[in-house]
Design a protein around this nucleic acid. Structure first.
Lengths: 108, 108
DNA sequence: CAACTATATGACCGCATAGTCATGTTGTCA
DNA sequence: TGACAACATGACTATGCGGTCATATAGTTG
């Protein structure tokens, strides 16, 4: 972790918080391999169109995704390659936790 | 990003959300090099003792920090080495954003 | 034992925000 | 032009959670 000024800490927290919503993780996961339209993501996530649209707006504002208009549709794609690495790291930590907890459960 | 089951996505989001609070980032930053007592962290962050204690409880529940009791004091330390790497990645993304935005500002 | 320190925790408040609904905007096609 | 499809957005509600206050618990010291 590099030196963190108070201002930078707020920005870092803001970015983590953006990734801290299950629906946004689902959206990013659906965008893992290819770009998708909003309608695609509505179908993939099971959320409302308005809801998906709001999450995409937030992810776009923070630079996590990029948009491309084509006629009446808008294609979104992941724009920050670090997102995948971040998720991998967090998943690794989560898996460790799960293993630790299941060991703890077996001991009871 | 490895394959994500819906359940795992919730866990991932939970962990991101835990890092998505400026105060918790401050606490982790204060724990970067050495373990610290709660009182140390209260002084380092400027927050209330109750507040720091609650954040530490959450960070501990998710396995980000570990505790060590010594007499009447409790020492906390970072227990998940990935935390630093996560912050570095997010910081990198944040810096890119800042540069992008300052370029955009100069163009106006 | 009483007094003090360090930490944790329950109750409570206020705010941020995820979700929904309705509507606006933009582009396409007949 | 009107009708339709895709997406964005403002208003609203409900819920989660960060912060504070008071208090509980545990350990130390006299």
């Amino acid at each position: 972790m590099a030196k963190l000024t108070p201002e930078l800490m707020d920005i870092v927290a803001e970015r983590f918080r953006a990734l801290g919503e299950p629906m946004r993780i689902r959206i990013l996961d659906a965008l893992r391999h290819r770009e998708r339209t909003v309608t695609d993501l509505v179908e993939a996530t099971g959320a409302t169109q308005a809801n998906v649209s709001k999450h995409l707006t937030l992810l776009h504002r923070l630079g996590f995704v990029a948009r491309r208009k084509e006629g009446t549709r808008v294609f979104y794609r992941v724009d920050d390659p670090d997102v995948f690495e971040l998720c991998d790291l967090v998943c690794g930590g989560a898996r460790k936790r799960v293993r630790r907890e299941s060991r703890a459960l077996r001991r009871t």
